[in-house]
Design a protein around this nucleic acid. Structure first.
Lengths: 347, 347
DNA sequence: CTGAAAGCGCTTACAG
DNA sequence: CTGAAAGCGCTTACAG
């Protein structure tokens, strides 16, 4: 049984292909009775126009690409894998589909070609990138080719490129965290930064610094280090940091994100340091596991669903030619106070 | 700057569109020097043929749909969300892309139409379904329309439909679990079944029963219940079951899967029952969290990567017209002994 | 309100 | 080895 095309439907309904197309696309210039007549034949034969034909006449694919970097995390981490769902959901609300790719880096030329091809072949109307560094030649190239690109965590001051959209974490998370610890009486605060090729990690670092300076807190080398963005690297960093200052421990540790904070938990447990009795810990992100761990983790949380919703919506607005779409949005986070920080008695 | 099409490339290279097409598709009947000449122009202009044109001439989309049911779990659960990665990886190895959809059920007519449309519009060469019930009219309809469908956890005895492929859990998991507990000396074993609309849950239930009968173990109503497939439902079930037999507790509980087993942990903790001192627990799946929890969970594990690899490979083989592709495959699991079961002294 | 015609970008027999 | 032509399935001005 061969598939019927618009010609066949037209013949069966006693109209022309033009009219079939008008009915399929819901145009208004078709009288109700012919519309019904045609619809009947369409339904009976399960007719759907092939996108291949439609695309050739300038229709959109109604598909966005989701390009996802750094695979190690995704399978294991419920937070990062929820990103997937948020993107798919937000797209579905606008009747768009999502073509998903997982890649481990953009330095491999093969990956670059792979992504370029997906754009150039006309498979997607736009692409969303998660986990790239803030500067990436491929992205610039795509933007230059007028492709519509959405970035999770990306920002260029004074940039005016309507086809590059982004969503970002607020730039106050670090300062707010320091404020909180300061208000609890902490004066000796250690900081474990993330991966400074990522915009959010830079911003958080700078924001920590602002908080430290504002409160005239001591910024000592031994209380600062880099901890990557996952538990394993956070664990290594925390162990390194703590072992390096056993004679003069900080009273609190700020971890660049919750994954790293879990690494800090691990290191503390190994070194016999109790949380929060011996040392307080604050994370960032609002990871699901933060409420299950012992003690529940105080963290500066973000609404990731909202972040992806904002990004996907503006990307689709741009695809659909809407004017004046805001290029970037900073989503404000909020402190979730749980049980990993204690109050310090000031002398 | 307008996109160049194959005509433009042909003109620039001084050949015909036919030759450009031959070069693009890597056909052999092009002499090396013309190939190079054409390739140079192609590279210089970043030319890629649009799929819309290619599809119209009968090429494949090289895309498979991934239809995923029951959204509650996916965001939170690292195991189920890893399925995504396995499918995308396995497809990428064959140079296929994945179009992902998340849906909460197939009883809603809107969802059914949504999926049907994706198939009928020619967006995908095949679709993979995860989390459907064993009988689903839409799937039968798609199979009837000669669409290629891959099912995770689906089996019909004596079925001979080359365009429906499936991958399944082995059918010995329950019996192997009972064997194991029996060998530790357990004689009073409770069973928390899953969702019996799912094939794997039926098979596991039957397999538990075989094990119980084989060892002449008492099968009591108070020691059997349904616990769904997630932690919350497992917790409810375990609480219900344990509270109903406090005067005659089983020495071990078999949970249909690890999520449910975590619910059992939760219920036991609440009821003051220690694992494994007071009661032993065995799960199934091989969930990542099973090794972190306290005590680490003994479970009957499966290699999900292998399962999806098998399914995706056979689906793509079928798309590419390969003959004699095995319709179904049962993947053997294996017991992972950790610390949630104790040895019982026999009287 | 409706149809005939043109055209989108590609590939594939076909002819040479 | 290579080009001209036909055709895939659709939509969109255009004309009436």
């Amino acid at each position: 049984m061969k598939r019927l095309n618009s010609n066949d439907i037209a013949r069966l309904a006693g109209v022309s292909r033009s009219t079939v197309s008008r009915v399929v696309n819901g145009y208004s210039n078709v009288p109700e009775d012919t519309r019904e007549k045609v619809m009947k034949v369409i339904k009976e034969n399960h007719y759907y126009p092939l996108i291949s034909g439609q695309l050739l006449t300038g229709k959109k694919t109604k598909t966005i690409g989701l390009f996802w970097f750094s695979r190690k995390e995704i399978a294991r981490d419920p937070l990062t894998s929820s990103y997937f769902m948020h993107v798919i959901d937000a797209a579905a609300q606008r009747d768009y589909l999502v073509l998903s790719c997982i890649l481990d880096n953009l330095t491999d030329k093969k990956n670059v070609n792979y992504i370029r091809k997906i754009f150039m072949e006309g498979r997607i109307d736009a692409g969303i990138f998660v986990g790239t560094n803030n500067n990436e030649p491929l992205i610039d190239e795509l933007v230059g080719l007028d492709k519509i690109v959405g970035m999770f965590d990306f920002y260029h001051e004074n940039e005016d490129v309507p086809n590059r959209l982004s969503v970002n974490f607020d730039r106050d998370s670090g300062e707010a965290t320091i404020d909180y610890l300061y208000s609890l009486g902490h004066r000796k605060i250690a900081i474990i930064d993330g991966d400074l090729r990522r915009l959010s990690c830079i911003h958080r670092h700078e924001s920590y610094m602002r908080g430290m300076i504002k409160h005239h807190l001591p910024m000592q080398n031994k209380w600062m280090t880099y901890g990557g963005i996952v538990q394993e690297s956070g664990y290594e960093a925390a162990k390194r940091l703590l072992q390096g200052c056993m004679d003069d421990l900080p009273t609190a540790i700020c971890a660049n994100n919750d994954g790293v904070a879990f690494g800090v938990y691990q290191a503390c447990s190994e070194l016999g340091l109790r949380i929060p009795e011996d040392i307080s810990v604050v994370g960032a992100d609002g990871h699901q596991n933060g409420s299950n761990c012992t003690p529940p983790l105080t963290t500066y949380a973000f609404d990731f669903k909202q972040m992806f919703q904002s990004l996907v919506d503006r990307v689709i607005d741009t695809v659909e030619g809407k004017e004046g779409v805001p290029q970037t949005e900073f989503i404000p986070g909020y402190l979730v106070e749980r049980a990993s920080c204690r109050r310090i008695k000031l002398p």
